[in-house]
Design a protein around this nucleic acid. Structure first.
Lengths: 248, 248
DNA sequence: CGTCTAATTGAACATCGTCAATACTTGTGG
DNA sequence: CCACAAGTATTGACGATGTTCAATTAGACG
């Protein structure tokens, strides 16, 4: 029953959690980031509920009506864009504090799919409520704009990677980015357990799963990494950075 | 003096134009799109001025302080992202009604460069003013959010292209997209004069200029296009569409 | 009209993708 | 608890696609 190619819909729509941004462990990485307590209180009013998203289920899919922005509270997601012709690609991986669903605003319909790669929890921010409170609270408004802009800058970075990097550089850039974000969340800065398959990494990087696998093996042979299935340990962080810098 | 690799700064900062969105020829494609007259009047209040941007000059560069969103009124732009290591890539081409500078919101600094590919005119929308009026005018607010979201969706489309398409598909997708947008602006739907070099196209598509050139030649040999330097005429629009559809 | 940039084209080469065989994980049911 | 099955990862050989380098031609602009 688990692990279907088309993830099953999520049965329980809303879990009745108590939401309290002001005491949330990830508030420095999330929407409240940098806001004074008075604005964070407003933020709490926006959040409708938390929602559980079991592993391998879709939080939303392409074509779904857009009603809310979601913020990852715990867990790990991937988003995939799909074109009309069936082509699809992983466009990003999201972890605690990161936003899901900004694509839906323009036409009120999601154009991508968000799937949990492990049992996860998200905060549901109904979009109408967000716009409403943004009108009354300047800092909240600015914060939201900053996060949309950050997504645009992030996307530009992905384009740069896809357009200019070779396979090895892409894989290394992916790893460095992932570990930087994990470090910001208090995880080890030298070792990761990847939540995604080689195929998903490859899709994100515009490579085949074989090329991703071979690249990991080569980086291991060169002594920069230790790779054991999904567990990656960085042995030479400096040299890893150089893999990208030396190119141009 | 002209055509330096680093475009010269724009000497006259603000041209004293009278701004009137309500009578502007491109209002259906621009920020006012779909808004009722009463909101368009508010929009006019946001626009500080129009500004002339001569060919091959930068409207803004990476590192510049972000103060305003710009909207292309006439002409044609490219935006390029540049990484710390010197790597850079064209991330988009903008024409009348399209926005420039959304990347600057997050940190108050531009992360990309916008260069005019022909003598152009932009409307300057000071960002503080935009946020201020957005708080008072719901539809304006929503419109702005829609346009940021549209940029995110557009970027996802570019990623999909860079990650999954072969050279010929990329070039064709680029042409189809360009002509669709030109058609929406009342230009011929069968012939274009490209404003950018093969190198700029290649950078955008993640290909070398030689591959772009060869691909044009092949599409011409196959009778789908007629290419004479920068002038491209589409002879078989249906078959052009099929170049992309048949892949998956 | 001449110079500089841009575009085309060819040949050799590198990188990555495809196909295929094998090994390793993980979860499930006997 | 073990064995099996399905999914996931590794590795090799080969081939396709796109890059690099180089030479030539065509355009654009002063």
């Amino acid at each position: 029953m688990a692990r279907t190619t088309i993830p099953p819909l999520l049965p329980p729509r809303h879990e009745p959690f108590k939401v309290a941004c002001s005491t949330c462990g990830i508030r420095q990485l999330c929407l409240p980031m940098g806001l004074p307590p008075i604005d964070i209180e407003q933020l709490e009013r926006m959040v409708k509920a938390r929602r559980l998203v079991p592993r391998n289920t879709a939080l939303f899919s392409a074509g779904d009506a857009f009603e809310a922005i979601h913020v990852v509270r715990t867990g790990f997601f991937k988003t995939s864009a799909c074109a009309e012709d069936g082509r699809d690609q992983v466009t990003g991986f999201q972890m605690a504090g990161e936003l899901l669903g900004l694509d839906g605003i323009v036409d009120g319909v999601h154009t991508c799919q968000a799937v949990a790669l492990e049992d996860s929890q998200v905060c549901v921010v109904p979009y109408e409520r967000l716009e409403g409170l943004s009108r009354d609270f300047e800092r909240l408004q600015h914060q939201f704009h900053r996060l949309m802009s950050r997504e645009i800058v992030r996307d530009q970075g992905v384009m740069l990677m896809l357009g200019t990097m070779r396979a090895e550089e892409r894989v290394v850039a992916f790893l460095i980015n992932l570990m930087r974000r994990l470090r910001a969340r208090g995880f080890s800065s030298s070792s990761v357990v990847l939540r995604m398959t080689r195929e998903e990494i490859g899709s994100y990087l515009g490579l085949t799963l074989e090329t991703v696998s071979r690249t990991f093996s080569r980086l291991q042979d060169d002594g920069l990494l230790e790779v054991k299935a999904r567990e990656v340990r960085v042995l030479k962080p400096r040299m890893l950075l150089q893999v990208i810098r030396q190119a141009a």
